[in-house]
Design a protein around this nucleic acid. Structure first.
Length: 275
DNA sequence: AGGCAGGCTTTTA
DNA sequence: TAAAAGCCTGCC
Protein backbone atom coordinates (compact mmCIF):
# COMPACT_ATOMS: atom_id res chain seq x y z
CA UNK A 1 0.00 0.00 0.00
CA UNK A 2 0.97 3.62 -0.43
CA UNK A 3 1.09 5.89 2.56
CA UNK A 4 1.65 9.60 2.93
CA UNK A 5 3.34 10.54 6.21
CA UNK A 6 3.28 14.20 7.14
CA UNK A 7 4.65 14.04 10.67
CA UNK A 8 8.39 13.59 11.42
CA UNK A 9 9.52 10.37 9.76
CA UNK A 10 13.05 9.60 8.63
CA UNK A 11 13.83 5.96 7.90
CA UNK A 12 17.59 6.35 8.03
CA UNK A 13 17.54 8.26 11.30
CA UNK A 14 15.26 5.73 12.93
CA UNK A 15 17.39 2.83 11.68
CA UNK A 16 20.60 4.44 12.97
CA UNK A 17 19.18 5.68 16.26
CA UNK A 18 20.29 2.63 18.20
CA UNK A 19 16.81 1.81 19.50
CA UNK A 20 16.16 -0.87 16.87
CA UNK A 21 18.86 -3.41 16.19
CA UNK A 22 17.12 -5.23 13.32
CA UNK A 23 16.29 -2.60 10.73
CA UNK A 24 18.06 -3.59 7.56
CA UNK A 25 18.74 -1.17 4.74
CA UNK A 26 18.15 -2.61 1.28
CA UNK A 27 20.14 -1.70 -1.83
CA UNK A 28 17.24 0.40 -3.16
CA UNK A 29 17.08 2.56 -0.05
CA UNK A 30 14.14 0.77 1.51
CA UNK A 31 14.21 -0.65 5.03
CA UNK A 32 13.12 -4.08 6.17
CA UNK A 33 12.19 -4.73 9.77
CA UNK A 34 10.81 -7.85 11.42
CA UNK A 35 8.37 -7.48 14.29
CA UNK A 36 6.71 -10.38 16.09
CA UNK A 37 5.74 -12.86 13.39
CA UNK A 38 5.64 -10.22 10.67
CA UNK A 39 8.05 -8.27 8.54
CA UNK A 40 7.56 -4.88 6.93
CA UNK A 41 9.42 -3.26 4.06
CA UNK A 42 9.17 0.51 3.76
CA UNK A 43 10.26 2.14 0.53
CA UNK A 44 10.41 5.91 0.14
CA UNK A 45 8.80 7.22 -3.04
CA UNK A 46 9.82 10.67 -4.21
CA UNK A 47 6.60 11.95 -5.70
CA UNK A 48 6.34 15.69 -6.25
CA UNK A 49 8.10 16.38 -2.95
CA UNK A 50 5.32 14.65 -1.07
CA UNK A 51 6.50 12.26 1.69
CA UNK A 52 4.96 9.09 0.28
CA UNK A 53 6.04 5.55 1.11
CA UNK A 54 5.33 2.15 -0.33
CA UNK A 55 4.66 -0.35 2.47
CA UNK A 56 4.74 -4.09 1.90
CA UNK A 57 1.57 -4.59 3.97
CA UNK A 58 -2.12 -4.00 3.19
CA UNK A 59 -4.39 -1.43 4.82
CA UNK A 60 -5.68 -3.92 7.33
CA UNK A 61 -2.22 -4.90 8.64
CA UNK A 62 -1.17 -1.28 8.67
CA UNK A 63 -4.12 -0.36 10.85
CA UNK A 64 -3.77 -3.39 13.11
CA UNK A 65 0.00 -3.70 13.44
CA UNK A 66 2.33 -1.26 11.75
CA UNK A 67 0.70 2.09 12.49
CA UNK A 68 1.04 1.30 16.17
CA UNK A 69 4.57 -0.08 15.78
CA UNK A 70 5.67 3.13 14.06
CA UNK A 71 3.96 5.16 16.80
CA UNK A 72 1.83 7.11 14.36
CA UNK A 73 -0.48 8.15 17.22
CA UNK A 74 2.17 10.53 18.53
CA UNK A 75 2.65 13.98 17.01
CA UNK A 76 6.43 14.38 17.02
CA UNK A 77 6.45 17.83 15.45
CA UNK A 78 4.34 18.97 18.38
CA UNK A 79 6.71 17.35 20.88
CA UNK A 80 9.61 19.16 19.20
CA UNK A 81 7.75 22.45 19.23
CA UNK A 82 7.75 22.39 23.04
CA UNK A 83 11.54 22.71 23.18
CA UNK A 84 12.54 26.24 24.26
CA UNK A 85 14.94 27.32 21.50
CA UNK A 86 16.63 30.16 23.36
CA UNK A 87 16.77 28.54 26.78
CA UNK A 88 18.13 25.22 25.53
CA UNK A 89 20.03 25.72 22.27
CA UNK A 90 21.75 22.32 22.51
CA UNK A 91 18.53 20.32 22.69
CA UNK A 92 16.96 22.56 20.09
CA UNK A 93 19.72 22.03 17.53
CA UNK A 94 19.75 18.30 18.36
CA UNK A 95 16.02 18.11 17.66
CA UNK A 96 16.43 20.01 14.40
CA UNK A 97 19.26 17.82 13.13
CA UNK A 98 17.60 14.60 14.29
CA UNK A 99 14.06 15.48 13.29
CA UNK A 100 12.47 12.32 11.93
CA UNK A 101 13.34 9.97 14.77
CA UNK A 102 10.34 8.23 16.29
CA UNK A 103 10.20 5.91 19.31
CA UNK A 104 9.06 2.56 17.94
CA UNK A 105 6.75 0.32 19.92
CA UNK A 106 8.95 -2.73 19.91
CA UNK A 107 8.34 -6.08 21.49
CA UNK A 108 9.10 -6.09 25.22
CA UNK A 109 10.87 -9.45 25.33
CA UNK A 110 13.02 -8.68 22.30
CA UNK A 111 13.92 -5.27 23.70
CA UNK A 112 14.82 -6.70 27.09
CA UNK A 113 17.19 -9.29 25.63
CA UNK A 114 18.63 -6.90 23.05
CA UNK A 115 19.58 -4.32 25.65
CA UNK A 116 21.02 -6.87 28.06
CA UNK A 117 23.23 -7.84 25.12
CA UNK A 118 24.05 -4.18 24.46
CA UNK A 119 25.92 -3.50 27.68
CA UNK A 120 29.56 -2.50 27.31
CA UNK A 121 29.55 -3.01 23.53
CA UNK A 122 29.23 -0.94 20.41
CA UNK A 123 26.29 -1.17 18.05
CA UNK A 124 27.81 -3.36 15.28
CA UNK A 125 28.81 -5.94 17.90
CA UNK A 126 25.33 -5.85 19.44
CA UNK A 127 23.69 -6.46 16.08
CA UNK A 128 26.01 -9.35 15.37
CA UNK A 129 25.14 -11.14 18.60
CA UNK A 130 21.42 -10.62 18.02
CA UNK A 131 21.62 -12.13 14.54
CA UNK A 132 23.65 -15.07 15.83
CA UNK A 133 21.04 -15.65 18.51
CA UNK A 134 18.21 -15.43 15.95
CA UNK A 135 20.00 -17.87 13.67
CA UNK A 136 20.66 -20.30 16.47
CA UNK A 137 17.08 -20.61 17.74
CA UNK A 138 14.72 -18.31 15.84
CA UNK A 139 12.42 -19.45 13.04
CA UNK A 140 13.46 -19.17 9.43
CA UNK A 141 11.07 -16.80 7.69
CA UNK A 142 10.59 -15.28 4.28
CA UNK A 143 10.21 -11.52 3.98
CA UNK A 144 7.66 -9.95 1.58
CA UNK A 145 10.42 -9.50 -1.01
CA UNK A 146 11.55 -13.12 -0.75
CA UNK A 147 14.56 -12.48 1.48
CA UNK A 148 15.14 -15.06 4.16
CA UNK A 149 15.67 -14.03 7.75
CA UNK A 150 15.25 -15.42 11.25
CA UNK A 151 12.59 -14.23 13.65
CA UNK A 152 13.67 -13.12 17.11
CA UNK A 153 13.66 -16.28 19.25
CA UNK A 154 10.94 -16.92 21.81
CA UNK A 155 11.79 -17.13 25.53
CA UNK A 156 11.19 -20.89 25.34
CA UNK A 157 13.68 -21.27 22.50
CA UNK A 158 16.37 -19.29 24.31
CA UNK A 159 15.76 -21.09 27.59
CA UNK A 160 16.17 -24.42 25.80
CA UNK A 161 19.63 -23.56 24.44
CA UNK A 162 22.60 -25.29 26.02
CA UNK A 163 25.40 -23.13 27.43
CA UNK A 164 27.57 -24.26 24.51
CA UNK A 165 24.96 -23.16 21.96
CA UNK A 166 24.51 -19.78 23.66
CA UNK A 167 28.25 -19.36 23.73
CA UNK A 168 28.36 -19.40 19.91
CA UNK A 169 26.42 -16.10 19.93
CA UNK A 170 29.47 -14.21 21.26
CA UNK A 171 27.60 -13.01 24.30
CA UNK A 172 30.59 -13.31 26.62
CA UNK A 173 29.72 -12.83 30.28
CA UNK A 174 26.17 -11.87 29.27
CA UNK A 175 25.35 -15.51 28.46
CA UNK A 176 24.28 -16.11 32.02
CA UNK A 177 22.07 -13.01 32.08
CA UNK A 178 20.34 -13.98 28.84
CA UNK A 179 19.75 -17.55 29.89
CA UNK A 180 18.49 -16.68 33.37
CA UNK A 181 16.15 -14.05 31.95
CA UNK A 182 14.71 -16.49 29.41
CA UNK A 183 14.17 -19.12 32.10
CA UNK A 184 12.52 -16.52 34.34
CA UNK A 185 10.10 -15.52 31.61
CA UNK A 186 9.25 -19.14 30.82
CA UNK A 187 8.62 -20.17 34.42
CA UNK A 188 6.70 -17.01 35.24
CA UNK A 189 9.14 -15.42 37.69
CA UNK A 190 9.32 -12.56 35.22
CA UNK A 191 5.78 -11.76 34.03
CA UNK A 192 6.23 -9.50 31.04
CA UNK A 193 2.47 -9.29 30.46
CA UNK A 194 1.97 -7.60 33.80
CA UNK A 195 4.12 -4.57 33.00
CA UNK A 196 1.56 -2.64 30.96
CA UNK A 197 -0.61 -2.08 34.01
CA UNK A 198 2.26 -0.75 36.13
CA UNK A 199 3.61 2.75 36.64
CA UNK A 200 7.00 3.72 35.23
CA UNK A 201 8.58 3.43 38.67
CA UNK A 202 7.07 0.01 39.31
CA UNK A 203 8.29 -1.22 35.91
CA UNK A 204 11.76 0.11 36.69
CA UNK A 205 11.81 -1.67 40.03
CA UNK A 206 10.83 -5.01 38.49
CA UNK A 207 13.31 -4.66 35.64
CA UNK A 208 16.13 -3.91 38.07
CA UNK A 209 15.41 -7.18 39.86
CA UNK A 210 16.46 -9.10 36.74
CA UNK A 211 20.08 -10.21 36.82
CA UNK A 212 22.05 -8.32 34.20
CA UNK A 213 19.66 -5.38 34.13
CA UNK A 214 20.90 -2.17 35.69
CA UNK A 215 19.52 1.34 35.53
CA UNK A 216 20.66 2.07 32.00
CA UNK A 217 19.33 -1.14 30.43
CA UNK A 218 16.10 -0.83 32.42
CA UNK A 219 15.60 2.71 31.12
CA UNK A 220 16.09 1.52 27.55
CA UNK A 221 13.54 -1.24 28.08
CA UNK A 222 11.08 1.27 29.54
CA UNK A 223 11.55 3.60 26.61
CA UNK A 224 11.79 1.19 23.68
CA UNK A 225 9.90 -1.88 24.93
CA UNK A 226 7.18 -0.30 27.04
CA UNK A 227 6.92 3.06 25.29
CA UNK A 228 7.36 5.01 28.50
CA UNK A 229 8.53 8.08 26.64
CA UNK A 230 9.62 9.91 29.78
CA UNK A 231 12.33 7.30 30.54
CA UNK A 232 15.81 8.80 30.23
CA UNK A 233 18.62 6.26 29.67
CA UNK A 234 22.00 7.63 30.74
CA UNK A 235 24.80 5.91 28.84
CA UNK A 236 28.37 7.06 28.27
CA UNK A 237 27.29 9.53 25.58
CA UNK A 238 24.44 11.11 27.52
CA UNK A 239 26.76 11.32 30.51
CA UNK A 240 29.22 13.34 28.43
CA UNK A 241 26.41 15.58 27.22
CA UNK A 242 25.22 16.27 30.75
CA UNK A 243 28.80 17.00 31.82
CA UNK A 244 29.68 19.20 28.86
CA UNK A 245 26.43 20.92 27.87
CA UNK A 246 24.45 21.05 31.11
CA UNK A 247 26.96 21.98 33.77
CA UNK A 248 24.29 23.77 35.78
CA UNK A 249 21.80 20.90 35.53
CA UNK A 250 19.38 19.36 33.06
CA UNK A 251 15.73 20.48 33.30
CA UNK A 252 14.24 16.99 33.61
CA UNK A 253 11.06 18.12 35.37
CA UNK A 254 10.36 20.79 32.82
CA UNK A 255 10.53 18.30 29.94
CA UNK A 256 8.08 15.76 31.33
CA UNK A 257 6.62 13.63 29.90
CA UNK A 258 8.92 13.70 26.85
CA UNK A 259 12.38 13.18 28.33
CA UNK A 260 12.89 9.95 26.42
CA UNK A 261 12.19 11.51 23.03
CA UNK A 262 14.54 14.39 23.78
CA UNK A 263 17.16 11.92 24.97
CA UNK A 264 17.03 10.25 21.56
CA UNK A 265 17.59 13.55 19.75
CA UNK A 266 20.58 14.37 21.95
CA UNK A 267 22.08 10.89 21.78
CA UNK A 268 21.94 10.71 17.99
CA UNK A 269 23.09 14.30 17.56
CA UNK A 270 26.09 13.98 19.85
CA UNK A 271 27.19 10.71 18.32
CA UNK A 272 26.95 12.21 14.86
CA UNK A 273 29.18 15.09 15.97
CA UNK A 274 31.68 13.09 18.04
CA UNK A 275 31.25 9.43 17.17
C1' DA B 1 22.86 2.61 53.65
C1' DG B 2 25.12 3.81 49.62
C1' DG B 3 29.45 4.55 47.02
C1' DC B 4 33.51 2.73 44.78
C1' DA B 5 37.14 -0.35 42.60
C1' DG B 6 37.92 -4.25 39.92
C1' DG B 7 36.57 -7.72 36.78
C1' DC B 8 34.13 -9.36 32.97
C1' DT B 9 33.83 -11.46 27.10
C1' DT B 10 34.27 -9.86 22.68
C1' DT B 11 34.47 -6.62 18.96
C1' DT B 12 35.61 -2.38 16.87
C1' DA B 13 38.46 1.48 15.45
C1' DT C 1 45.50 -0.53 22.95
C1' DA C 2 41.32 1.77 24.45
C1' DA C 3 36.68 2.12 24.29
C1' DA C 4 32.21 0.22 23.68
C1' DA C 5 23.67 2.44 24.64
C1' DG C 6 27.08 -1.49 31.87
C1' DC C 7 26.43 -4.70 35.52
C1' DC C 8 27.86 -7.64 39.40
C1' DT C 9 30.48 -8.62 43.43
C1' DG C 10 33.06 -7.51 47.34
C1' DC C 11 34.59 -4.08 50.33
C1' DC C 12 34.28 -0.03 53.10
Amino acid sequence: MKLQINDDFDLKKIANSGQCLRWWEQPDGSYMNPHHKNCLIIRPLAEENVPVYELSCDEKDYAEIWSHYLDMETDYSHVRSLIPEKKDPFLYSASESQKGIRILRQDLWETLISFIISQNRNIPAIKRSIELLAESCGDKKTAPDGTEYYSFPTPEAVAALSPEQLDTCRLGYRCRYIHETAVGVVNGTIDLNSFDALSDDECMERLLSITGVGKKVASCVLLFGLHRIDAFPIDVWIKRILENEYKSGYPMEEYRPYNGIYQQYMFAHYRELNG
